[in-house]
């Protein structure tokens, strides 16, 4: 086990930032913490990287206790905080060199590990970090977090605020890193990124809603889901909410995801109901649940 978290609690005043969190990450695994802002992801990262003390519970990272073995952990983990946290007034190369030096290594020594990522920004190595685009900053931050060949890599919302192209490239890089035997714990508010992880934990309000592989999580969705479309979205949502047998009604892009309370749902009956409420161009079709559907079902009050 590369990361073991056991019944961690942390609160700030009245707010329970983390409420009984337990999970395990196997060595070499890409583990995703999926949840919106305020779910407690950052607090959890800070506890695991020894930046904060838990109120209760314990955790081990790379075999070391996060409270007692502070120095050992700090030598063996790489951490990329949510906010871009490099020196904006230093150049790309100076930043990388600095982080190599403080970890007692050199760029040359671990170049093979960061090569894939660093070659993409190497043409700009004399540019100040503050002048890089979002995608390039992120690649530099990842290179800096990797330069000392950490055993465990913590990435706190690495793709927030980054355009879709850079996001895709970033995940491709993580997949390649995994092959180099680095355990990766990554957090993200994007549900669509969850599918790229080996294991995910869905988090909200300091609690873990579920932990499993992305495939298993959608497989466990308890009901058939229907996507419903009509000519007027607002009317459609209002009408579906007024349908007596509805279990959940959530807009999903151009459709609404609808679940019914009954096991023997009849789409013809719903169609008739919608038509009776002046809706036209009605389309009802069963669809596969997504991680977001599962998340909402689990978080449903």
């Amino acid at each position: 086990m590369s990361i073991q978290v056991h019944e961690i609690y942390k609160s700030y005043g009245q707010v329970n930032a983390l409420d009984n969190i337990s999970f395990e990450v196997k060595s070499g695994e890409l583990f995703g913490l999926i949840g919106p802002d305020g779910a407690g992801k950052t607090t959890l990262f800070r506890i695991l990287t020894t930046l904060l003390l838990p109120d209760r519970g314990n955790a081990r990272v790379a075999g070391y206790d996060v409270v007692r073995d502070l120095n050992a952990i700090r030598r063996h983990v790489g951490y990329m905080p949510g906010r871009f946290s490099l020196y904006q007034d230093l150049t790309v190369e100076e930043n990388l060199e600095f982080f190599a030096t403080i970890f007692g290594t050199t760029i040359a020594e671990n170049y093979d590990l960061i090569k894939d990522i660093y070659v993409q920004i190497e043409p700009f190595k004399d540019r100040r970090a503050g002048k890089l685009s979002g995608g390039m900053k992120q690649k530099l931050a990842l290179s800096c977090a990797l330069i000392h060949r950490p055993k465990v890599l913590f990435l706190d919302e690495p793709t927030t605020g980054v355009d879709p192209v850079s996001r895709k490239e970033f995940w491709e890089m993580l997949k390649r890193l995994q092959e180099k035997d680095i355990t990766i714990l990554v957090s993200t508010p994007y549900m669509d990124e969850a599918a790229l992880c080996d294991q995910i934990a869905l988090m909200q309000d300091g609690k873990i809603l579920e932990i499993d592989t992305p495939e298993a999580i959608v497989r466990h969705y308890p009901k058939p889901i229907y996507k419903v479309g009509a000519h007027d979205m607002y009317l459609l949502i209002e009408t579906l909410k007024a349908y007596p047998h509805r279990h959940s009604v959530y807009p999903f892009g151009e459709y609404v995801h609808y679940t019914d309370t009954r096991m023997d749902f009849d789409s013809g009956e719903l169609q008739t109901f919608l038509e009776a409420h002046n809706l036209s161009e009605i389309h009802i079709e069963e669809t596969a649940p997504t991680i977001e559907d599962t998340f909402m079902e689990l978080a449903k009050p």
Binding site: Y79, S85, Y87
Partner: peptide
Amino acid sequence: TMEILLVSP
């Protein structure tokens, strides 16, 4: 950046 410095040796 202090966060990163703290999580370093």
